[in-house]
Each structure stands twice: as C-alpha cells, then as structure tokens.
C-alpha cells in the first residue's frame, strides 16, 4: 500500500465502499503518511461543509410566474428561441438543401421552416436524430458536453483552478 493505491481508490475509500482487506491496508498507510492523512481530512471537510450548506427555496412569486406562463402559453418561453438557435448548426447544410428543394417543387410561399423541421429527419444520422428528439432543451450541447464529460482523458488543466 502506498500513496498511489489510495489515489486510485480515494473516492471509494471515503465512502467506505472498498473491500475490507483493502480498507485495512489503506488505513495503515494513512496512519503513517502525513500527506495522505491531510488529503483524507480535507476530503472530510469538503463533505462536512457541503452537507451543511443551506438549501434555498425559490421565492413564492416564482411559482406564481410559472402558473401564469403555463396557463398562457402565448407568451413564448425563451428556451424555444435558444433551441432553434442551437439546432441551426446541427441542421445546417441539410436544412438549406431541403429548403431549396421544397421551394423548387412547391409554391415559393411554402412555410419553409415547417418543411425543414419535418423532412430533415430523414437526412440525419441516428445521433443527430437523437439530439433532435431529445427531451433536453439544450440537447445539441448536452449537459455532458457542457461539462466536458465527453472527452474522457483527464488532464490537469482546469480553467479556473482553485488556489
């Protein structure tokens, strides 16, 4: 057992979910290694502090606003605009082609946007279809993308590193 072993099992060790034999070995190492002891103590602080962090309730007017918006769907929620903007790069060239084709065969005043959003499906690969059909309003940049989960390689280069 050494510092590397602890590093490898750190989170599981904190949770007490490592095998008893491993746990014992790690505890032994920690008792003799000030650096690892410091890491474990600090992790305990993180857990303590975040669990103590008060949770907040939204002010009552938030729910009133929601009820108002829901009962009056004419006030378009901003996410729809965002969704459309986000879909543009995905739909991109295919949309343009389809729009042109549809203009060619139907009247020039055809509702282009409708054509695009219905027909484009056929030209998309399965991943793009999934994005379009996803329940997530930010599907084209999923939470995983936003948070950088898509690239698995962990580099030690956080943008705003803690001191």
């Amino acid at each position: 057992m050494n510092c590397k072993t602890l590093k490898l099992h750190f989170v599981d060790f904190l949770d007490g979910s490592v095998k008893p034999s491993l746990k014992e070995g790690l505890e032994q190492h920690i008792s003799s290694c000030p650096k690892c002891r410091q890491s474990v103590a600090s992790a305990a602080d993180v857990s303590t502090v975040f669990r103590r962090l008060p949770r907040h309730s939204a002010p009552p007017q938030v729910f009133q606003q929601i009820q108002k918006r829901i009962s009056n769907p004419r006030t378009a929620p901003p996410y729809k605009l965002q969704l459309r903007r986000l879909l543009v790069p995905v739909a991109g060239a295919a949309a343009l082609i389809l729009a042109l084709v549809s203009l060619e065969i139907s009247s020039p005043n055809a509702p282009v946007r409708e054509v695009v959003f219905i027909d484009i499906d056929r030209d998309l690969n399965s991943h793009q279809k999934e994005l379009l059909n996803s329940m997530d309003p930010f599907a084209t940049i999923s939470a995983a993308d936003l948070l950088g989960f898509t690239e698995e390689n962990e580099r030690d280069t956080p943008t705003d590193k803690g001191k």
């Binding site: 750190f10 890491s39 602080d45 030690d156």
Partner: peptide, 12 residues
Amino acid sequence: NRAHKMLEGTLG
C-alpha cells in the same frame, strides 16, 4: 477525485 484535490486545504 480531482475536485477533492483542487479543494484540498481550502475548507479547513
């Protein structure tokens, strides 16, 4: 794991 490393010593 990384977060713990970055926060080390800050919350003490």
